[in-house]
Nucleic acid binder design. Structure first.
Length: 991
RNA sequence: GGGGAAUUAGCUCAGUUGGCUAGAGCGAUUGCAUGGCAUGCAAUAGGUCAGGGGUUCGACUCCCCUAUUCUCCA
């Protein structure tokens, strides 16, 4: 065997196929933007799916590449197993060579054999080939075109050697090459495809020759394809003669770096001893080394950790890595520090991780930090659970018969003992962990609690078990699993019931009644109304041979409009793309229109609005790059008729100034009325690159591309529709700026008429707030008048400042004449409105301040003026069995004031019971106060007194012993009820 | 897509069965103490209890809806 580094192996593979007429193409992003059915790119063929399906073409017939792939679940990969063996990964590279209707089985087998044995010098006697049981052709080829030991060619059935893309679609037999890694090289036929790590599949040659339809029937394809995939990490291990992929130079630099950071060393031995510390360390290092690769490439290609879809998968991977990091003693973020090592070793072939390195590290670090927060919270709840169990134990064993209460904080359990006649005091403190161990009390964490810890607080179950062990507690894992199963059940049930709401997927099989065209011809760049023929349809959608309707893509929403057939009109409410076929979604059910000539016309006004927003998006993108820096790149975009949304990588909140500069620059470009460069549709990719077009992140570029260029300001690849000249945009205004994820900002903006609408809306809000301010002044005036009335003299300061407020508000009312249509004149209006808003905001704040202080002063005054009558009330109190009773009806504005009065009575009357009543909003409100001595000595409780009275007026009430509130609806009974007080109090004394 | 939770002062969080004038710690402001700082003491300010409906005599508390965030499952 020839010893090669991993880079040499990669280069040698590509070179070998390049010499045989293959075009070397670059890996597609690991995050497939144009295939929502796929979480991550999981095979080399993903980017050629359209070719195999017959809906796309390429300029070359032979290609080779190394494809970044991520697999986290499915039949071949279980996340929980990664890192525990030598050869499963969540991220891996797939080396592949392709033939699109060109060479077939013979060349594929010959070249595979030649590369492995002649170029790389793998020992022939250690290679095994498998073929599909019915594929005599492949079997014969192996035996004739190669010098493989004929006994090493084995037949397998559907499970191992028949490849399918999905339930339906292109498929065919495949032929795998396995490598025998047993020490003596004496593997037997039984060991092939038996899941034994020593005999490992290294290369799969797929021969695509059939299409499977819904009924399961196979139809031969017009052209046959070859799709091969060789696991890069595995072949590295084989050629470098290592028994583990992790021992190759693909992983060693990362593992070495992990060792440096964690100060642990990797033994490299594969042991499965449970509880063996070194094997735990080794496993942890493998997990982290694997996961950091996935994270780096996924984030580098634009994915972000989140709580759904692929974001959630990433989060789980990161957390798994962080969790294993804890096994290595790491409690602070460190995974992000491994990214530079990856950049060093891999950016030569995948430059995107270098250009996005800062972003990748920031995202990983942020996510590590947030995981720590989650863990801390989870631990806190774990502590409450064990603390509560301990409390109940102590309560029954130590404080039998006593009334107790508890609280848990910082790992401490505090138990309060309520003794008669004494206030409650926390009198015993226990360190939960120590106390449990001291008592040798082993609490059981119930399945429900465990489930809750994981489900709601995100504590991984193995960690729960680990922590429980520290507390000497046990976890009811059976109960937990049961609840987990129930939750999965729920999710599944739900899924099946809601799955069919989606738009029907285009069936591309040839069995249907109608044969769909290869692709729809889009004429919408120039035409808005055409005649065409319906080539496929369903009740709610149809496809045309050619169409003016733009299908949703690249962020731009689909067109709407209508078609007419035989004078009948059908509304099109959306247009989507299924591969390259445009599906027009209709509002109502359609009759059979197949092969009919119809007229298709788009909603032109709406399309124009969309075009303005789309072109504005390009101007915005370039303005951002010029003002914030070239690190800004698109992370998503939506172009709708009423607004545009643009997400981009940038780490800080944009300042007011930056936003103003961006707006000004875009508007300057609009004013310059730059024409869109003509003739850039469908030009060769290479030519477009020469124009310096910005690559839109994650987009797939064919050989012929569309470029949208506005002078020297903006040049981008873009298939969308655009204005012919920037002046058509009329005016650009940013509506909002905010964050969508760490390191990603979002700008929403409007153009043209949208800007006018935005202005009208803002203006309306402004007017409303202005009117509100006037109301505030009115209220202030009223409050001031009342205060003046009570105090008997003017409160000059407030009186004068009220005039000032009105005057300042008057000034804000003056506005210049509003332009009849959207234009740059709008800038003046937006500008003035924003300045006025600032001033108005200030005034409103001052008004609120003034109101607050005035209300306070007024409340004080009211109380003062009432306290005179309070004295009278107290003086007129009646006595029942030597208890002073004060009862009265008063006039107040709110329950709060009534409480205030009650409090002042309580303070003034000394020993006694007070009851105040008031009618507020047509309902009776009551407050009862009882002095402390009576509460203690006579057991008179305000809550009970007031409750009894409230019943008389058709209500209820309660509160604390010394003060309580109540209410009722029956105002007419109030006087009668008040008269009952002596007898009510008396009745309580009797008890 | 479905479930579980959270949202209370600038920050971190309490608030037990519906009625407590909604609290604590840190921070802020002011005053005092020390040569200065670290700090200590005292006082003060700060809340539309996420928003909106409903039930109730009365809702931070119960119910419904919405928003945002966390989390699990798919």
């Amino acid at each position: 065997m020839i010893l090669m580094t991993s880079s040499e192996i990669r280069n040698s593979f590509l070179k070998y196929f390049e010499d045989r007429g293959h075009t070397i193409i670059s890996s597609s992003p690991v995050v497939p933007y144009d295939d929502p059915t796929l979480l991550f790119t999981n095979a080399g063929m993903n980017q050629f799916k359209d070719v195999f399906l017959g809906s796309g073409t390429r300029s070359y017939k032979r290609a080779a590449d190394t494809q970044k792939c991520i697999r986290v679940s499915g039949k071949h990969n279980d996340l929980e197993e990664v890192g525990r063996d030598t050869y499963h990964h969540t991220f891996f590279e797939m080396l592949g060579n392709w033939s699109f209707g060109d060479y077939y089985k013979k060349d594929a087998i010959t070249w595979a054999w030649e590369l492995l044995t002649k170029v790389w010098g793998l020992p022939k006697d250690r290679l095994w080939a498998t073929v599909y049981k019915d594929d005599q052709e492949a079997e014969q080829l192996w035996k004739s075109v190669t010098d493989i030991d004929p006994r090493h060619v084995l037949r397998f059935g559907d499970k191992d050697n028949f490849w399918e893309m999905g339930e339906t679609g292109p498929c065919g037999p495949c032929s795998e090459i396995h490598f025998d890694r047993t020490p003596a090289g004496n593997a037997t036929a039984e060991m092939v495809n038996a899941g034994i790590p020593e005999v490992m599949e290294i290369w799969n040659l797929v021969f695509i020759q059939y299409n499977r339809d819904e009924s399961g029937k196979l139809t031969p394809l017009p052209s046959k394809h070859v799709d091969t995939g060789m696991g890069f990490e595995r072949i590295c291990a084989v050629t470098q003669n290592k028994s583990s992929n992790y021992d190759t130079d693909v992983f060693l630099p990362i593992i070495k770096k992990i060792g440096e950071i964690t100060k642990q060393s990797y033994s490299g031995e594969m042991k499965t001893l449970i509880g063996d510390r070194q094997s735990e360390i080794d496993t942890s290092m493998r997990v982290i080394a694997d996961h950091v690769r996935t994270l780096t490439f996924a984030i580098g290609d634009g994915a972000l950790p989140g709580n759904e879809g692929r974001g959630y998968v990433l989060r789980r991977i990161l957390r798994r890595a962080a969790r294993f990091g804890r096994n290595l003693g790491m409690h602070e973020p460190f995974i992000f520090q491994l990214v530079p090592t990856l950049v060093e070793t891999m950016s030569y072939i995948f430059p995107e991780i270098k250009s996005n390195q800062g972003h990748i590290q920031k995202v990983i670090k942020g996510e590590e930090e947030s995981f720590n927060v989650t863990l801390d919270k989870g631990l806190y709840y774990f502590e409450s659970i064990v603390g509560y169990i301990l409390y109940n134990n102590l309560k029954t064993t130590t404080f039998v018969g006593k009334d107790t209460d508890y609280s848990i904080h910082d790992g401490q359990l505090a138990i309060a003992i309520k003794e008669p006649e004494k206030t409650l005091r926390f009198s015993k403190f226990y360190n939960i962990k120590e106390e449990l161990l001291r008592l040798d009390f082993r609490p059981i964490i119930s399945g429900v609690d465990t489930f809750r810890l994981k489900d709601t607080f995100g504590l991984p179950e193995d960690l729960i078990v680990l922590i429980a062990k520290e507390y000497g507690a046990e976890v009811d894992l059976l109960g937990f699993e049961k609840l987990m199963e129930e939750q999965k059940e729920r999710s599944r049930d739900n899924r099946t019931s809601s799955i069919n709401i989606n738009i029907p997927k285009m069936q591309l099989s040839a069995t249907g009644k109608y044969t769909p065209p290869e692709k729809t011809i889009f004429l919408g760049y120039n035409e808005t109304k055409i005649k065409s023929v319906v080539v496929a349809q369903n009740a709610r959608w149809f496809a045309l041979r050619e169409t003016p309707f733009y299908g949703e893509s690249g962020g731009q929403v689909g067109d709407t409009g209508f078609i007419t057939s035989d004078g009948v009109k059908y509304n099109v409410i959306d247009t989507k793309r299924e591969h390259d076929i445009y599906l027009h979604i209709t509002q109502n059910d359609l009759p059979d229109l197949i092969n009919k000539i119809i007229t298709a016309e788009i909603d032109l006004k709406r399309r124009h609005a969309i075009q303005r927003n789309h072109s504005a998006t390009h101007l915005l993108h370039n303005a951002l790059r010029r003002i914030l820096g070239t690190h800004v790149h698109q992370a998503g975009s939506l172009v709708a008729p009423d607004y545009l949304r643009f997400d981009f990588a940038h780490s800080a909140k944009l300042t007011e100034q930056e936003l103003a500069d961006i707006e000004a620059l875009v508007n300057k470009k609009i004013q310059e009325n730059i024409p869109r460069t003509p003739g850039l549709n469908n030009i060769p990719f290479e030519e477009a690159k020469k124009l310096g077009a910005l690559m839109f992140f994650g987009d797939k570029y064919g050989d012929f591309v569309n470029v949208v260029q506005f002078g020297d300001f903006s040049t981008e690849f873009c298939g969308g529709t655009h204005v012919t000249s920037t002046g058509d945009i009329e005016y650009f205004k940013i509506r909002s700026e905010g964050s969508v994820a760490s390191g990603v900002r979002r700008i929403e903006a409007v153009t043209g008429n949208g800007a006018v609408e935005l202005f009208k809306l803002q203006d309306k809000n402004f007017i409303e707030r202005l009117e509100n301010a006037y109301k505030q002044i009115d209220e202030l005036t009223a409050l001031n008048a009342e205060l003046t009335h009570i105090e008997g003299h003017h409160t000059e300061i407030i009186h004068n400042s009220l005039g000032g407020f009105s005057q300042r508000l008057e000034e804000l009312k003056r506005v210049p004449a509003f332009p009849a249509h959207a234009s740059l004149d709008l800038a003046i209006h937006f500008d003035q409105l924003s300045r006025h808003s600032v001033v108005l905001e200030e005034i409103i704040l001052q008004l609120a301040d003034a109101k607050k202080s005035l209300e306070k002063e007024l409340a004080k005054s009211r109380l003062n003026s009432l306290s005179g009558s309070m004295d009278e009330l107290i003086a007129s109190a009646v006595s029942v069995e030597n208890i002073k009773l004060v009862a009265a009806k008063v006039t107040v504005a709110s329950l709060d004031e009534l409480k205030n009065l009650g409090d002042s009575i309580r303070a003034k009357m000394g020993s006694g019971v007070g009851l105040l009543a008031s009618v507020i909003d047509g309902k009776v409100q009551l407050v009862c106060v009882v002095s402390d001595d009576l509460v203690a000595a006579k057991k008179i409780e305000a809550g009970k007194v007031v409750g009894t009275i409230a019943k008389l007026v058709g209500g209820g009430g309660g509160g604390r012993p010394h003060m309580a509130t109540a209410g009722g609806k029956d105002v007419s009974k109030l006087d009668e009820a008040l008269a009952q007080i002596p007898s009510v109090v008396e009745s309580f004394l009797r008890k």
